[in-house]
Design a protein around this nucleic acid. Structure first.
Length: 564
RNA sequence: GCGCCUGUAGCUCAGUCGGAUAGAGCGUUGGUCUCCGAAGCCAAAGGUCACGGGUUCGACUCCCGUCGGGCGCACCA
């Protein structure tokens, strides 16, 4: 990565400058150079600001920059000092080497090992098996699966988990709801009580129940049926879990009781008003929490604590949970429980995703406050998996998304995902055309392809990119090629940032910028020309773009189409 | 009342680490196909970074306060 390269270069140069007494009163090099890409590219391709050394060195920033630069050998790049900034501009050999490196490493060019094999448990979606997913679940599914892809690509050992809330009261309600639907289907007139699930999806479920011979209990059947539908949709939505973890199994294996026992032994529980309380306020929680209700049943929290204990016992050193913003009050008590069990709660990381507002007919619908909600299934049906995933991912997770259904449906071609996919299809088209017969406009005759397939393979395996810039006939063309190469070089830094900050949206933004750089290049430089040598070099660059963009889209779980 | 998130162009949002002239998309206006995909590209217009203090060489960024918006404060899950 060039950023690291220049940062190390500057760090080494500072050592030498100190040795030679060129940095005034600065005697120790504890400076970490941070290499950034200047907003104004006239300064250079990369920049390091050394102004902050001024205080200890007691020297003016420009002089500091000058003296440090004196110890940098300018090989493959040039240096331009402005104020306290050392700017680096790559020369063509170094730019060419980036192209060669991408073609050599292919989709591993942007891969990283910052994860160092850390065992990460990523839990997300974790819906009740009581009905179809709503749009919010789609956001967590997209976020979790993309984050998993990105983190795996950066060397984390990620295990994706879905916690099935199949043990609470809601299952009884589900069972009762199914029972009523079944009786309705049989012609009986039934009275619906409050707080049941009146959604029409249970009518289909009831039909399946009757067809199955009604052997299972209502609850077991409905639960399994809902879970099956959820799993089908998740697969379609390119979200793959390594494990669906049942809450009920924690009770069956006595893990919930054992967990309560353990907390009791550690003196973290007490009884009050007939209930068993956990002293979570001993930690960072604002108040104590009930684990066992006065009727003898456990709260949701109790099983969830046992679940987190289970995860830790399985050897995960980092637990990442994706929760809706409405669960934020839950974090403190969960962390308290982890600490109380003798683990370090800093291993638990909760990504609080803000909610998705649904806008229909120009009106904001409140999630869940409306009888007929838009389900994820319906949304995907309308706008497709690619567009849904990209829309869900393109915003930072702590921003509320306004998902305008009408806009997504009617103007889907204005969707940013198409812009990016279009660039990919265009690159593929050029690579296709390179080996297809061409039409000579003037003579209206068919010309032989520029290259045969073997030739093209050879170009892409063993590229000769020398002269890529010499054959550009104007500044625009040269600058566009430079900008594209530099943008491609940035891919690894972007991927790492997305993994480190748990922020896949950075890659949506990056994919869009990359597409812009390519479109720009395309408009200023003709790839397929009669000059075969020039065509070869430019085809190599097109292939680089195709490789990187398709990898980025792959990480996001969005398809990179060859044709549109 | 308390906690979390949030306030940047007409709209939807970026702005990673405190640095150089504040960045995109959509929308608006104009230009651009005889030729590799015009779902593209180029150009223009558009800003008191909610407001008030503080920290410092320097603040959209960090700290404190005020105001607005969202979400939550169960022996529900």
């Amino acid at each position: 990565m060039k950023k690291d390269f220049f940062a190390q270069l500057v760090h080494g140069a500072i050592d030498k400058a100190i040795e030679n007494n060129k940095l005034g009163e600065l005697k120790e090099n504890d400076f970490t150079p941070i290499c950034e890409i200047p907003k104004n590219t006239n300064f250079g391709d990369y920049a390091i600001n050394v102004s902050s050394l001024a205080r200890n060195a007691k020297m003016a920033p420009p002089l500091i920059a000058q003296n440090i630069a004196g110890y940098i050998e300018q090989k493959g790049f040039s240096i331009n000092i402005v104020a306290g900034f050392i700017n680096f501009k790559l020369e063509k050999e170094m730019l060419n080497s980036i192209v060669e490196e991408i073609l050599e490493k292919k989709e591993l060019f942007a891969a990283s090992d910052i994860g160092k094999g850390e065992k990460v448990n990523l839990e997300y979606v974790s819906a009740n098996p009581t009905g179809p997913f709503h749009i919010g679940h789609g956001r967590w599914a997209a976020l979790g699966s993309a984050l998993s892809n990105v983190m795996k690509y950066c060397g984390y050992d990620v295990y994706q988990e879905f916690y099935i809330n199949d043990a609470g009261n809601q299952i009884n309600k589900l069972a009762r709801s199914l029972e009523l639907r079944v009786r309705e289907l049989k012609g009986e007139k039934v009275e619906w009580e409050e707080d049941l699930y009146p959604g029409e999806y249970l009518i289909d479920c009831a039909k399946r129940y009757i067809a199955s011979g009604e052997k299972e209990s209502y609850g077991d059947f409905a639960k399994a049926d809902m879970l099956r539908l959820q799993k089908e949709l998740l697969e379609k939505f390119r979200t793959h879990f390594d494990c669906f973890f049942s809450e009920l199994s924690l009770y069956k294996n006595n893990e919930v009781e054992n967990c309560i026992e353990e907390l009791k032994k550690k003196g973290k529980l007490y009884e009050k008003d007939g209930a068993v309380w956990f002293k979570s306020s001993d930690y960072t929680d604002t108040q104590d929490r009930v684990l066992k209700k006065s009727d003898g049943t456990n709260t949701y929290l109790t099983a969830d604590i046992a679940y987190h204990k289970n995860k830790l016992e399985r050897g995960f050193t980092r637990l990442i949970n994706i929760w809706g913003a409405d669960h934020h009050g839950y974090i403190a008590r969960m962390k308290a429980a982890i600490d109380a069990l003798g683990y370090d709660s800093s291993c638990l990381e909760v990504l609080l995703g803000q909610l998705v507002n649904i806008i229909q007919n120009g009106e904001q619908m409140r999630m869940g406050k409306r009888k007929k909600m838009v389900t994820l299934d319906e949304l995907v049906e309308e706008v497709g998996v690619d567009a849904t995933r990209f829309w869900m991912l393109m915003r930072s997770s702590d921003t509320t998304i306004d998902f305008d259904i009408d806009l997504a449906k009617s103007q889907s071609d204005k969707n940013p995902v198409f812009y990016v996919q279009y660039a990919h299809a265009r690159a593929c088209s050029i690579l296709r055309k390179a080996v297809e017969k061409r039409l000579d406009i003037e003579n209206k005759t068919e010309l032989e392809p520029l290259f045969d397939k073997k030739e093209l393979e050879e170009i892409l395996i063993n590229p000769d990119v020398k002269g890529l810039f010499e054959n550009c006939h104007d500044d625009n063309s040269r600058e566009a090629a430079r900008a594209l190469i530099l943008k491609l070089e940035e891919s690894k830094a972007m991927v790492e940032a997305a993994a480190r900050l748990r922020a896949p949206y950075l890659l949506c933004k990056y994919s869009s910028e990359l597409a812009t750089a390519f479109h720009h290049f395309y408009n200023f430089s003709r790839v397929l020309t009669d000059d075969k040598e020039t065509s070869k070099k430019r085809l190599a660059l097109v292939e680089c773009f195709r490789i990187i963009l398709s990898k980025i889209l792959d990480l996001l779980g969005v398809e990179a189409p060859q044709k549109m």
